[in-house]
Structure formats: C-alpha cells, structure tokens
C-alpha cells in the first residue's frame, strides 16, 4: 500500500488529481481510493486531497497522517503550510516548481521530483492548471504507476468532468510533464512553524460554544478574531500603486472585499497581510493608479 497527500489551493483541482491517480491505479488492476480533506473549500486557500493505493481492497477509512508521497501543486505553498508534516526519511516529494530539487527546502531531505508544471500546462492547455501535469511528474518520480495508466486515469476523471476533448489535452500535459521531470534530493533545513490550534477541553470551551472575544494560547478567538488570519498568502497577483496618479477617490478602499486598503489621507496603503490579489481595485481605479503584477 502507498499513500499520497496532495497540496493545492482551492480551485487548482487537487481533488481531481487525487482521483485520476486512483483511477490510474485501478487501470493497473490495483485498488485506488481518493478523497478530499473534508471541509469548505475557498478559491486560493490551501487545500488537501489524498490517494491510497493497494493491491487488494482497502478497508481503511481514516485520513492519511504519514504519507509515502507528497505532491505539491504550487511551490509557494511550501512557505505557507507544513508540507513535510508526517513525512518519513523514505518519503518522496513531487513539486511543481521552476527550481531544481536541490534548491527546494521542504524541511526534510528527501527524494524530490520537480517539473515546471505551470509552463507545461500553459503550453499544452493554454491555462495554468497544473493538476494533470503534476501526475506525469508523479509517475516519473515514484515509478509507482505507468505514465500510460496516468493518461488513462486523466481521460477517465477529467473526461467525465470537463469533456472528452479536454480530458485528452490534460493527458497530453501529463505526458509532457513526465518527459520534463527532474529527480534529485531536496534540502531539509527549514524549520516548519505549525500554527497552534486552540483545542480546549469541554470544560474550557464556552458552554454551547457561545464565545466572547478571548485571547487563547493559539491566538484570538470569538468576535473580530479573523483579523489573526493572514489571507495574503493566497495571492498570485499583487496591486502596485502609483501615488502620483491617485486622486484619493477612495473607490479602491470601498470596493476592496478584504478591507485591506487604508486611506492615509495623503495616499492609499495596501495591507499585503490580507490582500488576496483579486484585482478589483486596479479594475475600478478611475485614474489607473493601480496595476496588478505577478507577486
């Protein structure tokens, strides 16, 4: 049996990748199971998906805590979440990155396959959707599954969801990524900081969870506490502001869904702790004082 954890962002299709791998295993006569991390998924927010494969029927229904393989759809996630959680020295990583394996630091030095899946996807699909290409890299790096089976799994899962034609294109993307995958060893110097979670006993938990603002050992909870949640990490693009063009009309301040553009009287200030990079401010600026650039 082997277990795989996929790290992606909401909207990147990590779940479809996990399912296509299960389907690929099925094609080879194995038993493949794929499941999401059960929760509310928001676009851009870090998400998880899992695949479990064995020769025989899998009865285990628990989540995966110590995966054999970790697949990272977006190398910026390495900065955000503990991708090394539960990994052992014999684990293997597959990463979408422009860097070489040796340039990556996953917090544990393990065998690592790298492909610039974003470029592959742009080339083959015309869109930066990496969930199919990364599977090609998985086949190449791990040898657990043949690239032909990956192609079959993608045709099956993607084909049913988004149509035969797109399924075929995604299979091509996986093959292209397979050819371009480089395998080496990543570095393991990073100390991953895991955000502490507030886990009160039933007695510490306010009755019925009716909660007032409180400072806990894991930060603020209750009314107004979301301010502790730095959503800036979701960003792909960021606004660049030209003070000279700004007429202080405050439209960007008003329209910002995050409320993270502040009016400092002389200029507008952007709070990148929270900016998700939606681009509404740039789109609505009557003076074109804001431009979105790749972060």
């Amino acid at each position: 049996m082997y277990e795989v954890r996929f790290h992606g962002r909401g909207g990147q299709g990590a779940v479809m990748a996990a399912q296509a791998l299960a389907s690929a295993a099925h094609i080879e006569g194995n038993y493949g199971v794929a499941f999401p991390f059960f929760g509310a998924e928001r676009r851009g927010a870090p998400v998880l998906a899992f695949t479990r494969v064995d020769k025989d029927r899998i009865y285990t229904k628990t989540q995966i805590y110590e995966p054999d393989y970790v697949v990272i759809l977006d190398d910026r996630l390495i900065e955000l979440v503990n991708v090394a959680q539960g990994l052992k020295e014999i684990a293997v990583a597959v990463v979408n990155s422009q860097k070489k394996p040796e340039e990556l630091d996953l917090g544990i030095p393990i065998k690592t396959g790298v492909v610039d899946a974003t470029s592959v996807a742009l080339e083959v699909l015309g869109a930066p959707i990496t969930n199919s290409s990364i599977l090609g890299a998985f086949a190449k790096t791990t040898g657990e599954v043949k690239i032909e089976s990956i192609e079959g799994g993608i045709r099956d899962i993607f084909g049913h969801r988004i149509g035969e034609e797109l399924g075929e294109k995604n299979a091509k993307a996986a093959r292209a990524a397979y050819e371009k995958t480089e395998v080496g060893t990543c570095r393991g110097e990073r100390k991953m900081e895991v955000k502490k979670q507030w886990l009160p006993t039933y007695k510490e938990l306010p009755l019925g969870a009716a909660t007032r603002p409180m400072q806990t050992d894991a930060g603020l909870v209750g009314p107004g506490s979301f301010i502790d949640n730095k959503t800036g990490s979701w960003r792909t693009f960021k606004p660049v502001y030209d003070k000279d063009k700004c007429n202080m009309c405050r439209f960007c301040w008003f329209y910002c869904p995050e409320g993270c553009i502040y009016d400092k009287k002389e200029e507008m200030v952007f709070d990148f702790d929270y900016c998700k990079g939606c681009g509404i401010c740039a789109n609505e600026c009557p003076k074109e004082a804001i431009e979105m650039v790749r972060d």
Partner: peptide
Amino acid sequence: DPMIIGSFSP
C-alpha cells in the same frame, strides 16, 4: 457584550 453563537464549527 458581543459573542458568536452557532457558527460553522469543524
């Protein structure tokens, strides 16, 4: 005395 009651809970 604001409090949150009944919110979405994991």
